[in-house]
Write a protein that binds this DNA or RNA. Structure first.
Lengths: 213, 213
DNA sequence: ATCTCAATTAAACGTATGTTTACTATAAGA
DNA sequence: TCTTATAGTAAACATACGTTTAATTGAGAT
């Protein structure tokens, strides 16, 4: 029976290897044989534990996206509670969105093997996969997030809020994507920025963008 | 022999179908059989005209990226010429980057079949493909672009310029990506924004982000 | 009319994919 | 000890992929 405490179960080895290979080679590009070889397990064990490659995708996203969305929601609710009757500032709303993602990326290797590297890529993976495995996690959150922006900046139209939210997504995810690729490119910074520094840079860029017109 | 004037040559039919299918299903996801069937040509004709699927990718990107980069450079140079001795404003630099892309997207169907939909996805396609087919087109431009930003905002450090440039890329490409997907999502605007409106929104968001700290 | 050569085609090739099967190993319960 | 259920495995399966082959077409040149 699965030994949940020890953390080196076959399921976890598969999930870890998959996360890394999906980020590197894409959802289609990483084959079952790539994955099981990297994980040091038998080829058939993926189908045994996850049913199919599709089930494996769902598990990979579920493992990281569920806690991430939870952390964002909690931060947003904390900011709203702290603000009392008035709406929290745009900066506070952006922080709720940005900080959990950057911290997740930083705690898990930061350079190479983070899940957020996969997130960056996921914005534009084959749409069918994203609609199936990623959007369901985002949808409950995005509504609350857009509402918070609308409250903080009451002059924005509904369409303005939609597009600015899109832009914020683009900033964060492409930023994290490039962060994970720093060692692959020649022209970038010599070393990655600190977590706090990066978070602040993202908050100020996105907040200024939202306030602009 | 290929009839260049008539524009309905086999090569063009293949390129058009490929552009659309790459955007929809990804570079790996769109098979040669998908492509040739959509183009109404024989399976083997891709290998005849482009040598391989890799050669087809190169041709697809070359056809759109070369003129796009040229247009951006010309706009940037025009802005620098117009500014005389002083550097052009951040807004002018952003416009040189953003306008050609949005206009390209708008002239080619705008909703569904544009190349920029493919560009949005390309930020995070399997890295090997992008390094091979996309980065070579961007590299000569990105240096000039970053230099223009640095001149317009002299207080920014070299690393600041790098990251802000990344953020601008994220805003534009994900914005265009969502633009092409408007009809697929439920919560977005009822109709797409006008070209000029969208360009201005992108310019103000990115310019404010760059000026922020 | 014949030749020529680029363009096109149907069919096959070899390989890689995700999945399934049938079998073995292991450890706890009665 | 025998049973049972879970976990793991080697091998085969059917399918889809990119590519290649060999044959055919069709229009312009001689």
């Amino acid at each position: 029976m699965g030994d949940k405490c020890c953390k080196h179960t076959t399921k976890d080895k598969i999930l870890d290897a998959t996360e890394k290979l999906f980020a590197e080679k894409g959802l289609d590009g990483a084959s079952m044989r790539d994955i099981t070889e990297a994980a040091g397990v038998n080829l058939a064990s993926v189908n045994y534990h996850f049913g199919s490659k599709d089930g494996l995708m769902a598990a990979v996203f579920q493992r990281r996206l569920a806690p991430l969305m939870k952390a964002r929601l909690e931060l947003l609710e904390a900011a709203e509670a702290a603000a009392g009757d008035s709406p929290p500032s745009i900066e506070a709303v952006m922080e709720a969105f940005i900080r959990p993602a950057v911290e997740d990326a930083s705690t898990r290797g930061y350079k190479n093997e983070s899940f957020l590297r996969l997130m960056g890529r996921c914005l534009s993976e084959p749409i069918a996969y994203i609609d199936k495995h990623v959007h369901p996690h985002f949808e409950p959150f995005i509504e609350r997030f857009q509402a918070a922006i609308a409250r903080a900046e009451p002059d924005l139209t509904h369409d303005d809020v939609f597009w600015k939210t899109c832009f914020v997504f683009g900033v964060l995810h492409h930023g994290l994507h490039m962060l994970s690729r720093l060692n692959c490119i020649t022209f970038g910074p010599d070393e990655p920025p600190g977590v706090e520094e990066f978070v602040q840079q993202l908050i100020s860029f996105t907040s200024a963008g939202i306030k602009s017109r």
